[in-house]
């Protein structure tokens, strides 16, 4: 059900990457300013929704690179994994750990960041499974 409006399709070509980049930006700024994995994931999903409307589900799937189930699975695993790390430190599940690794631009690496990235991926996976299922057939 792709739309054959030239304007819309051309706009999408520029808007889509912008939205994905913006969604990642929202994800990482969430720690200190409005944003976070959930909102970021929704923005990213909206970007893919735009893609679906402009180019159809087949191309949207291709643009996602991997299956939507994998998005959900990786997302949930990241969340679970970030919680499990503290178990090996002798603390209870999901106790925040900070590592002394400095990542340029993003800042210090810690389990909340991993957890939020998991939320981000899972939300994209969930939303697109529903969107694409409805958009197809």
């Amino acid at each position: 059900m792709a739309m054959f409006s030239l304007l819309f399709r051309t706009a999408t070509r520029f808007l889509f990457p912008l939205m994905i980049v913006f969604s990642i930006f929202v994800l990482f700024r969430g720690h200190n300013a409005p944003g976070g994995g959930f909102i970021g994931g929704l923005v990213g999903a909206a970007g893919f929704a735009l893609y679906i409307i402009a180019k159809g589900t087949e191309q949207a799937r291709a643009a996602m690179r991997m299956s939507r189930r994998l998005y959900m699975a990786i997302g949930l695993s990241l969340m679970l994994g970030s919680g499990l790390i503290s178990l090996f430190m002798g603390q209870s599940f999901l106790t925040t750990q900070w590592f002394s690794i400095q990542i340029p631009v993003l800042g210090k690496l810690g389990t909340p960041g991993i957890f939020d990235t998991g939320v981000y991926l899972a939300v994209i996976g969930v939303t697109l499974i529903i969107l694409i299922s409805l958009a197809e057939d």
């Binding site: 969430g30 720690h31 200190n32 300013a33 409005p34 944003g35 976070g36 994995g37 959930f38 969340m79 679970l80 919680g83 599940f93 999901l94 925040t96 909340p112 957890f115 939020d116 939320v119």
Partner: peptide
């Protein structure tokens, strides 16, 4: 973290979020 909402979601109440 400075964003209270996000910190609650991913840290204090991370189990709920999961």
């Amino acid at each position: 973290g400075e964003n209270v909402v996000n910190v609650i979601l991913v840290d204090f109440r991370g189990m709920d979020t999961m």
